[in-house]
Design a protein around this nucleic acid. Structure first.
Length: 229
DNA sequence: GGGACTCGAGCATCCTATCG
DNA sequence: CGATAGGATGCTCGAGTCCC
């Protein structure tokens, strides 16, 4: 644990939250992740051993509650943890406005992007229709190239293997462009016009992509140093 | 087989003592 | 006072365990 040797409340808060990854674990829990594997999907570069250590630390600090139903272990935020939400949102707003975004390969992560998108998609748009969306990243050749989002009864599932259903809409793009759209750095219309995003399939889904895909929470915050795509 | 870890080796970074 | 070395600490990666 970091210790600053100061009574200042900011120092005390930093002793709890200042370690690497800690804020992002709280972010994931605040966004609705509850199981160890959900958290891993939202934090793909964090090792499981470190995630386990951080969860134990946050539990001891009174930020996270661990409950074991016998079937599976759930992690949820305590009242202290929930009170961090506006603080993290303020931190994110500051980051979107002031922190330089370079979109270098090390900052781009298709798994984190798809996990984030699947969580914020407007599932209500699809009603009771079973809908299959295939996202294909032209800049990836590995197992991370194709991602299926399956919408069913208000739930969205993300899949890295072909689930075997007919695809309603095929979206061909690259990770950098979709990240830029997701963060509000460029609009769908601009991306389509510049052929950074191409679609094949259901014409209504194509037309309404800006309605159902959603955007990152901070996308409306204007950056002082926007990136050039 | 999936979920939730745990362990150990190796590497990276940080901290502290020492030296010029 | 600043640079350096070496030990301590932290982190990742990969493999494995345990339980349901």
């Amino acid at each position: 644990m970091i210790e600053y040797g100061q009574f200042c409340p900011i120092a005390k808060a930093s002793e709890v939250l200042g370690e690497r990854w800690t804020n992002l674990v709280v972010r994931e829990l605040g966004a609705g992740s509850e199981t160890f594997n959900d958290l891993r999907r939202g934090l793909p570069l964090m090792s499981p051993s470190l995630l386990s250590a951080r969860l134990k630390f946050l539990e001891a600090a009174g930020v996270v509650e661990r409950s074991d139903s016998g079937k599976r272990i759930r992690y949820t935020l305590t009242e202290a943890g929930r009170e961090l939400k506006p603080i993290l949102l303020a931190l994110g707003t500051w980051g979107q406005r002031w922190a330089p975004t370079r979109f270098e390969p090390k900052d781009l992560d298709p798994s984190m992007l798809m996990w984030d998108i699947h969580r914020s998609m407007k599932a209500d748009y699809f009603g009771q229709h079973h809908t299959v969306l295939l996202f294909e990243f032209e800049d990836y050749t590995s197992k991370h190239r194709r991602w299926w989002l399956i919408v069913e009864r208000g739930e969205v599932d993300v899949c890295m293997r072909d689930p075997g259903y007919d695809v309603d809409l095929h979206i061909l793009t690259d990770v950098k462009s979709l990240t830029a759209i997701w963060l509000g750095q460029i609009t769908f219309a601009q991306a389509i016009r510049r052929k950074l995003l191409k679609m094949a399939g259901d014409s209504q889904l194509k037309k309404d992509i800006h309605l159902w895909l959603g955007t990152n929470y901070f996308s409306s915050v204007k950056s002082v140093n926007p990136v050039r795509i």
